[in-house]
Measured scan of single mutants.
Amino acid sequence: NITNLCPFDEVFNATRFASVYAWNRKRISNCVADYSVLYNFAPFFAFKCYGVSPTKLNDLCFTNVYADSFVIRGNEVSQIAPGQTGNIADYNYKLPDDFTGCVIAWNSNKLDSKVGGNYNYLYRLFRKSNLKPFERDISTEIYQAGNKPCNGVAGFNCYFPLRSYGFRPTYGVGHQPYRVVVLSFELLHAPATVCGPKKST
């Protein structure tokens, strides 16, 4: 009989979020998941679920829940969905086509923008091939755009693969920082350890 609540607040209220190319993952297990707390949290810009209804989450049990978190621009949030393409979905964070879970995003301009620009948040701009679902690539190898080998030196046709967002408070909404948490639900042939409040007695 599990009684402790799942530590969703640790994920959602973290002081610093990860850059999207180096997205953070927390495994959540052996706890009671009260999703209504999240669902009623006012400032969400997006709360979209795939393969599961957000209002039914509290009735369900899962083997594991993974909480992935990172920061992207407002106009990139739409790429955090199954079957998407674009710089983020291709080179930074890719969801599987059969994704079961929820994508939760909110504007973090007050936290993550600075006058003069916040350059701490990076994304991958160049990559030889697209990421596989949930693949994480933190390499900083110089990207070779031409035929000539770069030998690890940036220059003509040789690019550092990461780019900084440089968030400023005055940017338009599409270019403002958004914090994103992706909850993915794993249902294995194993005992369920993460259940909603109704199922955990």
Rank of each mutant, 00 (worst) to 15 (best):
N118P: 00
S129V: 04
Y91F: 06
T55Y: 03
D9G: 02
P191K: 12
T201E: 06
P7G: 10
L122Y: 10
N120V: 13
V20P: 01
N157S: 01
V194Q: 12
Y39R: 01
T193V: 07
S78P: 01
L187H: 13
V65M: 02
G196D: 14
L188K: 15
K198I: 10
P7H: 06
I138W: 11
T3K: 01
G196I: 09
N4D: 15
H189E: 15
A192S: 11
Y66N: 03
S200G: 14
P149Q: 08
T55R: 04
S139C: 01
K110R: 11
D34N: 09
S129A: 05
T193L: 08
I28Y: 15
R163I: 01
R136K: 03
N147I: 04
S53V: 09
D9M: 13
T140R: 15
Y171F: 14
F160R: 08
G51Q: 08
P7N: 15
F45Y: 09
I28W: 15
T100F: 03
T201C: 08
H189Y: 12
K110E: 12
L188D: 15
K198Q: 06
Y39P: 11
S53A: 06
E186G: 15
K110S: 04
K114H: 03
T63E: 11
T193P: 04
L162V: 01
G152M: 11
V115W: 00
A192Y: 04
V65I: 05
S184K: 02
N75Y: 05
F134A: 15
F156E: 13
S129Q: 09
Y123Q: 05
V153N: 07
K198R: 10
G51H: 02
S53G: 08
N118D: 06
T170A: 00
G155L: 01
K198Y: 05
P149D: 04
S19A: 07
K114G: 00
N130V: 03
H189C: 13
S200E: 04
F44T: 04
N130A: 14
R16G: 08
T193Y: 10
G116N: 10
F134G: 07
G196H: 02
G152F: 02
G83F: 12
V115G: 00
K56T: 13
G116I: 00
E186N: 05
G155D: 03
A42F: 02
D59E: 04
G116D: 11
Y143T: 04
G83K: 04
P169R: 00
R16K: 13
L122G: 04
D59H: 11
S78G: 07
T63H: 01
A154N: 07
I138L: 04
L187W: 03
V32T: 07
N87G: 02
K128T: 14
L122D: 04
E141H: 11
V65G: 06
N87H: 02
Q144R: 03
D9H: 08
L187E: 05
S29V: 09
S200C: 15
N24A: 15
R168Q: 12
G174F: 04
D9W: 09
V32D: 07
Y50F: 03
F134C: 01
F134M: 10
A46W: 15
K128A: 04
S78N: 15
K132M: 14
Q84T: 08
G83A: 00
S53L: 04
Y66H: 11
T3M: 13
K114V: 00
N58T: 06
S184I: 15
F44E: 06
F156Y: 15
V153I: 14
G117Y: 00
A46F: 10
N120Q: 03
A67L: 00
N4G: 02
N87K: 12
K148P: 11
V153Q: 12
K198S: 08
A22C: 05
K56I: 12
G83N: 05
G51K: 01
P54H: 14
T170G: 10
F8I: 11
T3H: 10
N75V: 03
S78V: 12
Y35I: 04
K199V: 12
K148Y: 14
G117P: 00
N147V: 15
F41N: 00
N40E: 15
N58H: 10
A42E: 13
L5H: 08
K148F: 10
A105Y: 00
P43K: 09
L125V: 15
F160M: 04
A190S: 08
R168Y: 06
V173E: 13
V37Q: 12
I2P: 15
R16M: 10
K128E: 13
I2C: 11
A154V: 12
V153T: 10
S78Y: 12
F45L: 08
D9E: 09
N147T: 03
T201Q: 05
N87W: 00
L125F: 03
